[in-house]
Design a protein around this nucleic acid. Structure first.
Lengths: 190, 190
DNA sequence: AGGTTTGTATGATGACCATCATACGAAATG
DNA sequence: CATTTCGTATGATGGTCATCATACAAACCT
C-alpha cells in the first residue's frame, strides 16, 4: 500500500520492539503504555490506533521476544552432538543474560505473570513452550540416552529456574554460583 | 502483657498468615491491602497499626511462607540417603503443589517480583535461598558424588523452573508432563 | 466508676494508569 | 488546490489502590 500504511506498520513494529524489551524488564504489571510509546518515540494517545488494548500488546510482545530462539538453538546445532546440551546450558546461564532481562528469555521473565493472567495468556505461553521443546528435541534426538523429550523439558526447567533464582538474590557471588551450579547440574549426566 | 497486646499480636499473626497465602497466589503487584485485611477479618484502616507499609508486610509474609520448609526437608531426611534427592523432586514437582500456589514454595511464586523490587527484597530473598541451600546440603552431603552444594543449587533451580513453567501453560497434560520430566531429569544422575 | 489509651472502622485524599474523546496536521485523492 | 483521510497529540475520565485523618468503643488504669 501507500507510504501511509507502510509507515504505520513500521511504527507498530517499533512499539512492539519497545514493548518486548520493556515487558521483560518491568513485567506485565510494571509495563506502562505511556512508557512503551515514549520508548517508541510517540505519545500515549496513538497507542490505540495500533493495538486494541494492553493485553493484546503484551501477547504480541511476548511472541516477539522469541525472535532470537533460532539463533540460540542454531548456534548449538553447529556443535558436535555430545556438546550440545552443555553448550545450551552455558550460553543460557550467563551473568550477561541475568543482567539484561530485556534482551533475554521471556519464559524466565514472564512465566509467573502469564500463569496468573487469565484470558489467552496461558495458551500463548504454551505455544512458545511447545515450540521450544520441539526445537530442543530435534537438537538432542539420539544424542542423549533416554528420552530426548524429557531431557528437553528438564533442561528448560533447569535454565528457567536457575535464571529466576540468580536474578532474585542480592549477592553477585551467590548469584554467579547459582548459575554455575545449575549449568553443572544439567551437565552432570552421562 | 495484658489481654490487649496479646490480642494484637494474634491479629498481626492472622494478617501475616493471610498475606503469606495471598501474596503467593496474587503476587506482589496483585496483593491488595484491603484483601489481606478482609481475609484476616478486619477492614483496611487497621492495617497501619500493624505494619509500616505494604512492603514491610510482604517481606514478613515471604519469610512466613518458609514455615513448612523444615517439614519438606525433614520428610526427606527419613529416607535412605540414596532416595533423598528423588524424594525431594517428587514431593515438590506435584500437580497439587502446582495448583495451590498459596500453600506452596515462595521461591517459585515470588522470585520474579522480588528480583525486580528494590529495597530489601533481594536481601530477604537471598537469606531464604541460603538457608534452603544449606538444608539441602546437609541432606545430600556425601550421598551424591561430586559437589553437594552444586547438587543442592541445581536441584533448587530445576524445581523452581519446572514449577514456574508448569503453572504457566494451559494444557494440563503438557503441564503434568513438564513436572514429570523435570523430576526425571533431576533423578537421572548416578 | 471516670478518664485515658489504643485497636479498629469509616471515610477522605491523592497518585497512578488504562482507555477514550477530541483536535491537529500532514499525506492521499480528485 | 480543495477536500478527505487517518496517524498522532493533548487533554479528559474513571477506576483502583496505598496511605492518612478522624471517630468510636472496648480494655486499661487509678
Amino acid at each position: 500500500m501507500g507510504k501511509r500504511s507502510e509507515e504505520k506498520q513500521e511504527t507498530r513494529q517499533r512499539i512492539l520492539s519497545a514493548a518486548s524489551r520493556l515487558v521483560r524488564k518491568e513485567g506485565i504489571a510494571g509495563l506502562k503504555v505511556t512508557d512503551v510509546m515514549a520508548a517508541a518515540g510517540l505519545t500515549h494517545g496513538a497507542f490505540y490506533a495500533h493495538f486494541a488494548d494492553k493485553n493484546e500488546l503484551i501477547e504480541a510482545a511476548f511472541h516477539e521476544a522469541f525472535d532470537h530462539r533460532e539463533n540460540w538453538i542454531g548456534s548449538a546445532r553447529k556443535r558436535p552432538s555430545e556438546e550440545r546440551l552443555s553448550h545450551l546450558l552455558n550460553t543460557y546461564l550467563t551473568s550477561k543474560h541475568r543482567d539484561t532481562p530485556e534482551q533475554g528469555c521471556a519464559f524466565a521473565a514472564l512465566a509467573r505473570e502469564f500463569a496468573q493472567a487469565g484470558g489467552d495468556f496461558p495458551k500463548t505461553f504454551e505455544r512458545e513452550v511447545r515450540v521450544s521443546v520441539d526445537r530442543l528435541i530435534e537438537l538432542l534426538e539420539g544424542k542423549t540416552e533416554g528420552n530426548a523429550r524429557q531431557t528437553a523439558m528438564g533442561m528448560l526447567s533447569l535454565c528457567v529456574g536457575g535464571m529466576v533464582l540468580a536474578r532474585a538474590v542480592d549477592d553477585p557471588k551467590l548469584s554467579n554460583e547459582l548459575l554455575k551450579a545449575a549449568a553443572a547440574f544439567g551437565d552432570a549426566r552421562p
